[in-house]
């Protein structure tokens, strides 16, 4: 079988005394769209952020394409990998944030091509062509020269997606991408994400948008209290949740 894109074993994360992740095991195959749902405080964002080392796991292993991310075990202790190695690993993982985090002092196009030019050393002209194509793909070709301040939330998030895609990542990580959007803008972002899923992108999506999970999700994980309580195909989870906590949660949100 092909090597999984992401493999997580025995992941524990403490913030001070508080244990937020209490032992997670997770494997994500290429092309899979994995949706993570659960109440706030369940640890789902933390889990996602451990995948690209924005949070440092306290214990356990996170492997990306077979390689340990950010730190490795040596003599029973976790040793940080050199920053340059981590930077390189991150170029293969794209992340989309709840609050977009576009660079306000750059235009949409400049946001998109910043990393390819600075990190990959891509030539300016080539990068601009790439950038324009990506913006077209997310439906914002005409906004290339606009500053984020003049874009709606939905437009900003789509630029953010284009920005992440510009690095041609192997996996896209979405951290509640539509939670900060006005309801009428959610649809345009979800559409881009659905298109991406259908094109075969490996995606890990933390979200409350159950419709998205149903339409393009291969697997749904329900998290609560720092553990994966239940997981399965979307239909199974939504129509026939097994665990009482899953049922309780879904009753509230569906």
């Amino acid at each position: 079988m092909e090597q999984p894109i992401i493999q997580i074993t025995g992941l524990h994360k403490y913030f001070g005394q508080l244990e937020v992740l209490k032992g997670i095991d997770l494997t994500i195959q290429k092309g899979e769209v994995v949706v993570v749902i659960g109440p706030s405080g369940s640890g789902k964002s933390t889990l996602l952020r451990c995948m690209n080392f924005l949070e440092v796991p306290t214990r356990g292993h996170v492997l990306f394409k077979g390689e340990e991310v950010g730190q490795r075990e040596a003599n029973g202790k976790m040793v940080r990998l050199p920053e340059a190695v981590l930077d390189k690993q991150r170029t293969h993982m794209g992340m989309v944030f709840q609050r977009f985090n576009l660079f306000p002092h750059m235009t949409a196009l400049q946001n998109v091509i910043e990393a390819p030019v600075q990190v990959k050393g891509m030539e300016q002209g080539k990068a601009e062509e790439l950038g324009r194509n990506l913006l077209k793909r997310v439906g914002l070709a005409e906004k290339a020269g606009q500053y984020p301040a003049f874009l709606s939330g939905g437009q900003q998030q789509r630029v953010a997606i284009a920005r992440a895609l510009a690095m041609e990542p192997d996996v896209m990580l979405f951290d509640e991408p539509t939670s900060a959007l006005d309801p009428e803008l959610v649809g345009e972002v979800l559409q881009v994400m659905k298109d991406l899923a259908r094109e075969g992108m490996t995606m890990v999506v933390v979200t409350h948008e159950m419709g998205f999970a149903r339409e393009v999700g291969h697997r749904v994980l329900f998290m609560d209290g720092g553990v994966v309580v239940e997981e399965g195909k979307p239909e199974a989870i939504f129509s026939n949740p097994q665990h009482p906590r899953t049922r309780e949660f879904l009753a509230k949100v569906l």
């Binding site: 690209n52 924005l54 920053e83 340059a84 930077d87 390189k88 690993q89 991150r90 170029t91 993982m93 794209g94 992340m95 944030f97 609050r99 985090n101 576009l102 660079f103 306000p104 002092h105 910043e114 990393a115 600075q118 990190v119 953010a160 920005r163 992440a164 690095m167």
Partner: peptide, 27 residues
């Protein structure tokens, strides 16, 4: 400067120095 800015830059694979120079300091 919002911490999300540094996170976004680093998540794209930019080094700390690049992120500082190109994203944080200009702001």
């Amino acid at each position: 400067i919002d911490k999300g800015q540094m996170e976004a830059a680093r998540s794209l694979g930019m080094s700390y120095g690049q992120a500082m120079r190109r994203v944080i300091l200009p702001q």
